[in-house]
């Protein structure tokens, strides 16, 4: 009789185990909604790597099962981005985030995706006329204005500045430039913008621009770089042996070489976009859109001036917005 009771007990236990497993699996199943989001970068610099890290962390931490497909073009090319976009539409992803190299070129492709039922978010550079649901990025115009203020403070209200920018097809860069120049024109007439050039994202050409401007304006007081290629200016200043005492260098973004340049004294300050947070926001908003929730159209992130006063707190990587 004892053997029979044991056998029955074992059977009961086994059955309970199965039931528990089934229930929990079902629970898992309920939670594991699978989403696939695509993220298209215009390049693979550290700047975009930061955004990518932010996005990956958020995807991993999310309770929903999110899979990220991240793509970047080999060179700075809107056409290449378009190809990737179409590919993602064909794959039938649940959402797309893109930093358009050329907003005009890419708007129709963005619309195509939206029409196919795939929500699209723009980051870093906006494609305002497209059907994109949201823009995540810096309010570039006001950022440019803020740079003008800081420059003026450092220059004491007067001086001669040179501006170098990246390709103006990137709307954001244009906005920064506009904001900077507009503010200077409005408020600081004694600061002269001696030259303003833009270049494609080829470092050599870029540096040639800067060198040419310097040669033509040897008495300039400040060089401003509005895209992420601040290292060019830093290296040139190194070659000249300049630091803040000699000339001002103001740049954008927070690559490691730029941060080193601030430490070593070549660059006076940089404007950081705190872009790692964009990655977090991209994933969250795409999830919201996939699950049918509304998102704000303009999602401006914080920007911050980093100079030798606050670099120690900042050094080692951009701080996340709480």
């Amino acid at each position: 009789m004892k053997g029979k009771t044991t056998k029955r007990m074992l059977e009961a236990i086994a059955l309970s185990c199965v039931l528990i497993t089934a229930v929990s699996l079902e629970g898992y199943a309920a939670e594991a909604d699978e989403y696939t989001f695509g993220v298209i970068f215009p390049g693979t610099t550290d700047f975009f790597t930061d955004i990518s890290k932010g996005a990956q962390e958020e995807a991993a931490a999310s309770k929903a099962g999110i899979e990220l497909i991240m793509e970047a073009t080999a060179k700075f090319s809107a056409e290449d981005q378009a190809i990737i976009l179409e590919d993602m539409i064909k794959k039938g992803v649940d959402g797309i985030a893109i930093a358009p190299s050329d907003s005009e070129v890419l708007t129709p492709y963005i619309d195509k995706a939206v029409d196919a039922g795939i929500p699209v978010i723009c980051f870093d550079t906006d494609a305002e006329t497209s059907k994109r649901a949201e823009f995540i990025g810096t309010d570039n115009y006001t950022a440019g204005q803020a740079m003008a203020e800081e420059l003026s403070r450092l220059l004491g209200g007067k001086g001669k500045i040179l501006i170098e920018n990246g390709p103006l097809t990137q709307a954001g860069l244009q906005l920064r430039q506009d904001g900077l120049i507009d503010r200077l024109t409005e408020k600081y007439p004694e600061i002269e913008v001696a030259d303003c050039r833009s270049s494609t994202a080829n470092l050599t050409a870029y540096m040639d621009d800067i060198e040419a401007m310097i040669n033509e304006n040897p008495d300039f007081s400040a060089l401003v770089q509005l895209d992420a290629t601040g290292r060019a200016g830093i290296r040139i200043f190194k070659a000249y042996g300049w630091d803040k005492e000699d000339r001002l260098l103001a740049v954008f973004d927070d690559t490691l070489e730029i941060l080193d340049g601030i430490r070593n004294g070549q660059a006076a300050f940089t404007m950081s976009q705190c872009q790692r947070d964009w990655g977090t926001q991209i994933v969250r908003k795409l999830l919201d859109l996939s699950e049918g929730r509304d998102v704000p159209e303009m999602n401006y992130s914080e920007y911050r001036i980093i100079d030798d006063r606050n670099i120690d707190a900042y050094y080692g990587g951009p701080q996340l917005k709480p």
Partner: peptide, 10 residues
């Protein structure tokens, strides 16, 4: 590497 080119008495 940090400072760049300069006269060494600087």
């Amino acid at each position: 590497e940090k400072t760049g080119v300069h006269t060494s008495d600087r």
